[in-house]
């Protein structure tokens, strides 16, 4: 059931608020209720995202996420509503993950490719990259997983954001701090590279 907050005699249905509105209310209000809603909205998505772009396991990803939300709270005044909140929080998460990976240089950077990632690409990519039709699905999934694991990080990263996190080109541009053209080129190159590995 949606939480409700009474403020100045106006009932605010927290669940119906947009992310940017929650940020404004968090900044205005002394209670953490609005921020809690933001955490709820992004926790699962970001947990998956952290694990998709790094080698961290579930427990480590949770710790990272905790730090990410604290960072978000710490820098909340920096949020600019001309950008999507999701782009902002994804960017903070990505930067934090990169810094954590750099701190653990000795650890081999083997990214886990989950079933969902491989499945999602198999579902969405055939028309775009002409996947071989003669493979049985299980075999195809294994090949896609193996190809994704070998794909350079910069290409895998854009595929994760576009196909799994379902971010638009403009949002990816804001997350990675690159131009939309550069993002578009990167995605096309990633698909081309993947096609090369699969055929």
């Amino acid at each position: 059931m949606a939480k409700k907050k009474e403020k100045n005699a106006v009932e605010v249905n927290v669940k119906e608020l947009k992310d940017a509105e929650l940020v404004v209310l968090t900044l205005q209000d002394d209670s953490e209720e609005f921020f809690e809603e933001l955490i709820e909205r992004y926790e699962r998505k970001l947990l998956r995202y952290v694990m998709r772009i790094s080698y961290f396991d579930f427990a480590e990803a949770e710790d990272i996420l905790q730090e990410v939300f604290l960072k978000v709270y710490h820098n909340l005044n920096e949020f600019d509503d001309e950008f999507a909140f999701s782009s902002w929080i994804y960017r903070i998460t990505r930067n934090f993950v990169i810094s954590q990976v750099r701190k653990n240089k000795s650890r081999p950077n083997v990214v886990r490719i989950d079933d969902e990632f491989a499945e999602s690409l198999i579902e969405r990519l055939p028309s775009e990259i002409d996947l071989p039709r003669d493979f049985v699905r299980k075999e195809l999934k294994e090949r896609v997983r193996s190809a994704l694991a070998k794909l350079p990080e910069k290409y895998r990263e854009v595929l994760v954001l576009y196909y799994l996190e379902e971010q638009s080109y403009a949002e990816i541009s804001d997350i990675l701090k690159r131009s939309v053209n550069s993002v578009s080129v990167q995605i096309n190159r990633a698909k081309k590279k993947l096609r090369g590995m699969l055929t």
Binding site: L27, E32, F35, E36, I39, E40, E43, L47, E62, L65, Q66, F69, L70, Y73, H74, N75, L76, N77
Partner: peptide, 16 residues
């Protein structure tokens, strides 16, 4: 995660 984050905020361990 939510619980840990909000506890830290309430305790004033992180400020905006």
């Amino acid at each position: 995660v939510s619980k840990k984050v909000l506890t830290k905020i309430k305790k004033g361990e992180v400020e905006r």
